[in-house]
Design a protein around this nucleic acid. Structure first.
Lengths: 347, 347
DNA sequence: TTTTTTTACGAAAACGTTACCGAACACTTA
DNA sequence: TAAGTGTTCGGTAACGTTTTCGTAAAAAAA
């Protein structure tokens, strides 16, 4: 019996297990001196409560899950940072699950969470999630789910998103102002709510600026980076190639840079590029990239805060806790008007 | 009673709880037909075992912890990817804890893990970890710990690292070959084992190439990015500034790029830069960055594999499972010999 | 036939914690 | 004095699972 548990403490102090438990939880039923003795011994022996026992007993785990498509992506990494900051403050543990944009994996992960593994879930769905019954089942089982960034519209719960429509509209308008005549939109998925909003912002901006319907040039990319390279290469190698790209996610912009390098296309003279991105090095790229920067850390924080609100007040109407946080366009040389000309200290 | 648990299944099938349990675990004591009935109902009701109950009973949790300094860092993000790949294959859950390079937080996290919260731990220590008693206590409590990248030398357990000494030696030699006369080493911590190895590789390479002792120019940076900016700015603004920087971690290289931009210093003509880095955009930077690329994904995978080996065979000698994986130098223009001259398609 | 073995299941005890129900004791109040 | 009240603690039943032990009934061996 070298385990440090309540029984061990009780035996050493000649007290009952329940007294020890209450002393450690600072119950009013225990005298100050007893509490002091118990706490002193607990500290001395490095007592840590067995989370599994107390979770089983209390039917709550002090743990939340974060389900995201990928982690090698600045947006999600920063969001996790925000989530973790709140969770650590609240004394919660954070489980990370990666779907790798695979719907089946997302379902399988959700099923693992069906039975009280976690108290709540923060989720950004994968690109090919259409059937949402696995998420509905979670909610039915009283496990609150809060979406951040990528949400399922049909599910009535909190969604922490950014102003995707407006900022896409603005970014497209920016491209037009900078002289772009033919703008391609690089899409990853039409299923995603954010995909829809972003694409709509793009096409509405085109219409508002006198473009015609046939100018709506949506290029469907996917989750395979080699495929995407081919797709974008084909696009930019064609005779009537666009003179501007609007990348709906960061990695499509990066791929576009590589393609431009290979095809010896000058950014921004031949092709202007704007992208959703949280790249720390965006200003250091050649040329610096015009980004739509989402406040990833704050999105994570906000999502976590809403989730904890739901955990503290069960039965709260989560749908009405939805939040829209504004993004920001950081201009780089990748959408500059003039012929490319470099000088140090730019940006 | 809308909970789906063994009792519920037992009642619906008129069987005992233990029979249900054994049927689901495919025990030889249960007839094929009973098993079939149980499994069918379990599937129909979306039964998922309560992890807390079984963890409590079995004294193991099918969960591992990953303790790292930060997550908004490509190296750690990729390492987690590797870890998660193995964990998901083995049916394990992954808890992420961030220390934010704060020793106290590392201790507090470790203490949380003292009592069976996880079956094993993968750890990359924070820069200011010197006292390692919290880690030793974990091992004493029979929780295997495997270090990756940043290890504590004094602790006798598996360390998955890269060839830091050799690759630093090579990188420094490369700088010298490219014409660098005065090379500064940007350090984050002398405590860290990897810090020591990297620094030693640097200084040994200097000595081997006829540099003198006083050429050993080690600049101590820290975890505050503003501090680092000032430190590097002071270094590069001085009259006898170095003509090359060896950044021991990625973010110091990025900061150096920003400083060079501000001071209008040309990379590589005025200052050459080489850095440990897993930046996906390194070849796209202006100029492209010469990187020491650590195989982050494989390090994570290898560390997880060693940990699972220990979990499957308790009592294994972890120290002898240590592994050294080789890094690779990817040359960019940031260490080019010639005066800066740009052409498309480079790299 | 009787005895042993095998098959297939049930009862119950754990795992460590929390919470409900008392209960002894001192003290106050009617 | 009797009844109520507050304080401080112990006993015990859960939480859902796994596992040891026991035991009927059926099958095999004697």
């Amino acid at each position: 019996m070298d385990q440090v548990n309540l029984k061990r403490l009780a035996k050493e102090l000649n007290l009952s297990i329940s007294t020890i438990s209450r002393a450690l939880r600072d119950s009013y039923e225990i005298s100050a001196e007893t509490k002091a003795k118990v706490i002193a011994l607990a500290r001395k022996l490095n007592y840590e409560p067995n989370l599994y026992a107390s979770s089983l007993r209390q039917q709550k785990s002090k743990t939340i899950a974060v389900v995201i498509p990928e982690i090698a992506n600045n947006f999600f990494a920063l969001a996790i940072n925000g989530i973790e900051a709140i969770a650590q403050k609240k004394g919660y543990h954070v489980l990370i699950y990666l779907t790798h944009e695979d719907f089946q994996k997302e379902v399988s992960i959700s099923r693992h969470l069906f039975n009280g593994r976690v108290d709540g879930i923060l989720m950004s769905v994968s690109t090919d999630t259409q059937d949402v019954s696995h998420i509905e089942e979670l909610i039915q089982r009283n496990i609150p789910v809060v979406f951040f960034d990528r949400a399922c519209e049909s599910i009535k719960t909190a969604k922490i998103s950014t102003d995707d429509y407006k900022i896409s509209y603005d970014a497209t308008t920016h491209l037009i102002k900078q002289g772009a005549k033919k703008i391609a939109y690089l899409s990853i998925s039409e299923n995603l709510s954010i995909g829809k909003s972003r694409m709509l912002g793009y096409s509405d901006a085109l219409m508002a600026n006198g473009f015609r319907n046939e100018d709506n040039l949506v290029i469907n990319c996917n989750n395979n980076s080699e495929d995407n390279y081919s797709i974008i290469r084909a696009l930019l190698a064609s005779d009537d190639r666009p003179d501007a790209l609007f990348a709906s996610v960061e990695r499509l912009a990066i791929t576009s840079y590589y393609v431009c390098n290979e095809l010896m296309l000058d950014i921004p003279a031949d092709v202007k590029i704007v992208s959703f991105s949280n790249l720390e090095t965006a200003p250091l790229l050649d040329p610096s990239l015009t980004c739509i920067v989402q406040p990833a850390f704050n999105i994570g924080k906000a999502a976590a805060e809403v989730l904890f609100k739901a955990l503290e007040k069960p039965g709260i109407d989560l749908l009405s806790e939805s939040l829209v946080i504004t993004s920001e366009i950081i201009e780089g040389r990748s959408t500059a008007k003039q012929i490319k000309k470099k000088f140090a200290g730019y940006i």
